[in-house]
Design a protein around this nucleic acid. Structure first.
Lengths: 214, 214
DNA sequence: ACTATGAATTCTGAATACAAAAGACAGGAG
DNA sequence: CTCCTGTCTTTTGTATTCAGAATTCATAGT
């Protein structure tokens, strides 16, 4: 197997995003570069490179002289990000090969149906949801678009741990995914795109209340 | 007046993007960090920070051990970027306040009509075009979306100098802008969104032939 | 008691120094 | 002659150091 030869900044970024998923960092808190670098066992240089990348993605904020902080969460931003990702995924779906979409539709349907069956922890559910959306847009030839979606979704990760809850309305989410898959199977892409948008809007509304007011 | 207190990496990024507009850098060429840092009169550290930011925007590519290079241009990528920006601007328009859109519509119309009148150099035309689009989406409340559009458009800058030509079909472009403005004036946003998309698609097709095959 | 001022501390922003990988090139074996 | 290999050079990736800004805390003055 090929060994990991990626630059440190990427590994650091992944590690930080992972911690973000786990809610290790409170949103809005400042980052102490020396402390974090020591904790990760790297020097400040690649750490700062990772931080700059993440600031570009909107995960972090930076102000002159005060360094980086985890961008505070807000309903407004959550809504904005959801709108953007919904629009981008809809665009990706619109730009996909219809034949390929019909081909993967059964798998999408199967995944959606498996959704509520398994009693699982939050992060398993999230991973499953991510995989579903990844497969959905996997037929899009626009590589830049795929990259962009990934990047914007990184910003949404800050909200992941907030959404952890035992009364997650999984059935609703699964049903909406099923509907998208079914529409793709019949080849009605325009309707499927609309259903996908609805899924994002509805999902957003469901989660909105769990985000602190401001 | 407040003096410039932005971090060096931002100033460097702007300088590099400006040079890109002027076509100072050939696409696909490697960047020598020490040479470029010396030329700019800064150290490698903030330069690399700027390069990493630009790599995140897709303006540059980086490979392990080989550093950064200006991403090569291609019709495929140009098409991809245009599709994305078209989708994002359409989304921005869709998320704007209709009243505000009606309010700025006359100004948009005036700008579009002034378009072909002035005999101007290429970069003046480009600036004018940018201003028109900026005004168009200025009513969008989704700040993240606006930032994202700006970021993706940075990637399009690599194509700006390629598109310089004396037989630019300005009238066509202006006419399409007029149509968008007129539709906004009547309050028919859905149609305006469609016209905007058409504008991007048509503009893309017009430019496509000027990009080297691969 | 409260505010303002200034020193001390802490941390970021930038520069320099070091290490390691990639590329170039020459020499030798087949 | 060709291909491989080992060394040398160049350039990047990372660490460390230096300088300056922001914050904190204490103290003096009102």
């Amino acid at each position: 197997m090929p060994i990991d030869r990626r630059p440190l900044r990427e590994q650091i970024r992944e590690e930080l995003l992972g911690r973000l998923d786990r809610g290790d960092f409170a949103a809005g808190t400042d980052i102490n570069e020396v402390a974090l670098a020591a904790e990760l066992g790297v020097s400040r240089t690649p750490l700062r490179e990772a931080l700059i990348t993440m600031a570009g993605e909107g995960v972090l904020e930076s102000t002159q002289g005060r360094g980086f902080r985890f961008a505070p969460v807000s309903r407004k931003e959550f809504r904005e990000l959801c709108e953007i990702v919904a629009g981008l995924e809809a665009l990706a779906l619109d730009r996909s090969d219809p034949a390929y979409l019909r081909e993967i539709a059964p798998e999408l349907l199967r995944m959606a149906r498996d959704f509520p069956d398994r009693i699982a922890e939050q992060h398993v559910i999230e991973r499953h949801d991510d995989e579903w959306h990844d497969l959905l847009v996997s037929g899009c030839r626009n590589e830049r678009l795929i990259d962009l979606i990934t990047s914007v979704k990184a910003g949404l990760r800050r909200y992941a741990h907030l959404l952890a809850s035992d009364d997650t309305p999984l059935e609703r989410e699964a049903a909406e995914h099923c509907r998208v898959a079914e529409l793709l199977m019949t080849g009605d892409r325009a309707e499927a795109v609309q259903a996908l948008r609805d899924n994002w809007v509805n999902g957003m509304e469901r989660m909105m209340s769990r985000i602190p007011a401001s």
